[in-house]
Every structure is written in structure tokens, then in C-alpha cells.
Design a protein around this nucleic acid. Sequence first.
DNA 1: CGGATTTGACCAGCGC
DNA 2: GCGCTGGTCAAATCCG
Length: 181
Amino acid sequence: MDYYYVNPINPNYGAHHDDDDYSAMMSMSDFMISDFLVADDDAYGYGVDDHHHNNQESGSQSQSTNESSEMAAFSDVTTTNNSGEASSINNNIKCKNGSKKEVNSRVAFRTKSELDVMDDGYRWRKYGKKAVKNTPNLRNYYKCSSEGCGVKKRVERDRDDSSYVITTYEGIHNHASPFTY
DNA sequence: CGGATTTGACCAGCGC
DNA sequence: GCGCTGGTCAAATCCG
């Protein structure tokens, strides 16, 4: 599965839509998003060989860290737009509509970091770990530890560049971040 | 002692 | 139907 580079500009950076975890994520993370990556609905398709990382660490580095992140946004939603930017971004790109099961919203990004876990402002409880095929690395499963909030995320290292961490968020927080910026 | 993590078992979906 | 694979559960364990 290929990633599609997209305009790195996020017009709504830091905006606070209530039910939009996309913007929530943007606002809670310090680092700059340097590149978006958009995959169509097979989020796990990078078993297919490809050159999915042209690591152009474009000049926009974070001010405090040297992390660079790429963002893959894939909302499997067909028509159920889950509000706002994420879906609109997808509309701009390739959006293989339909067919797959509908997931509320799924956003992934790839971050150059030595830490497996990054503090994104929410509290996560780890509930599983799995070795996935075609990857020497393990995938970790986290759930938002807030009651009634079923947001999940997975964290795994890039298959062939283990200095990158791929974080996939799934779902929408029904509460504010414990830390409000 | 309470909450988080670990880890193997279990389950569901899919392809053959 | 079976086996493979990814995702989740939950009991045991860890750790503050």
C-alpha cells in the first residue's frame, strides 16, 4: 500500500473541535508535522513492498526536538464523515470509498523517535502485544484509560527503519485531554 | 495495596 | 471447515 504525500499544511492546527480527535491530536503534540501520509483504507498494507518512506525530513523540524513526523490519515469511513478536517483531507486525496468495514476514524503517523511511547496528552493502558507478520517488531495495543472512551491506538516500529515509530489512533475521544493546552 | 503491564489464550474474519 | 493472522481478554505479575 502506498502512501500519498499531501500538503503538510494543517489549516486547523490547534483548533478544538469537540469530537474531532484529529485536531485534538495536533494540538496536544508539540512536534511539527512535516509530512502527511495518507493511505487508503488498508492501513496495514505496508506489507506490500514499496518505498514507502522517502524520508525527506523537510526543513520544518520541531523546535525542541529533532523528530520528524509523517502523518497518514486513513478514515475508512465511506460517507460517515466524522466531521471536519480528517475527512476533508481524505477527500483531497485518494479515498477508496466503501467496501471495507467502517471505522470511525483512524489516523496514523510515523515519527522518528527512539521512544516507543510518546506522550500525546492522553492516558493509555496497554492491553496487548503482538508480533505481526512481515515485521520483526512487535505491535503494542493501547486503550484510552478514560472511562467510557474506547479510543485505541497501536504502536509499532517501522518495519525496515526501526528508528521510526508508527502510531495509529482509532476512534474519537469523548472527553478532553487530561492536559489541556 | 491499587492500578498498570505482561503474556499466553482465546476469538473473529478471511482466504483457500 | 481449517488454518492463519490480527486483535482482545484476563489472570498473574510488577511496581509505585
